[in-house]
Design a protein around this nucleic acid. Structure first.
Length: 115
DNA sequence: GCGGTGACTGACA
DNA sequence: CTGTCAGCCACCG
């Protein structure tokens, strides 16, 4: 049994909890899924593709930058989806993620998941 | 078992 | 502000 299969549900749940127009990071999602420090595991899960049902585009690096290489198809798609939700992206970076409740911290997601 | 590879992170220059 | 760098760790050949 792969660890990624073991935590797939928890990770997907955490990602699905991010409201439209908000963003979070791989590390935050990992913590919310009960696997602190495993940001790369979250990335690995998303890299498997077939996540049309998840708001994967709301997951960014810890510094607010898009994780894909600049100019790649994934990069453009993520930026497009974010802008479609009113999130401004400049130079592959979300502008002021800490203002106006645009970013989702661990507690915020926990609150959405558990009330 | 070993080495390479990331949709990562934090610290530091 | 940008760029390195060392950890990181599951997965794969």
């Amino acid at each position: 049994m792969r660890l990624i299969d073991q935590y797939r549900d928890a990770i997907c749940t955490a990602i699905a909890a991010i409201p439209a127009g908000s963003i979070s990071s791989y590390g935050t999602i990992a913590r919310c899924a009960g696997i602190p420090g495993r940001a790369r595991l979250v990335a690995r899960l998303l890299a498997e593709g077939d996540h049309d049902d998840l708001p994967w585009h709301r997951v960014l690096r810890a510094d607010g930058r898009i994780a894909f290489p600049a100019g790649s198809s994934g990069f453009r798609e993520q930026a497009r989806r974010l802008r479609a939700e009113g999130v401004s992206v400049v130079q592959g970076r979300v502008v002021r993620p800490n203002r106006a409740g645009a970013d989702m911290g661990e507690r915020d997601i926990d609150r959405l998941l558990w009330g």
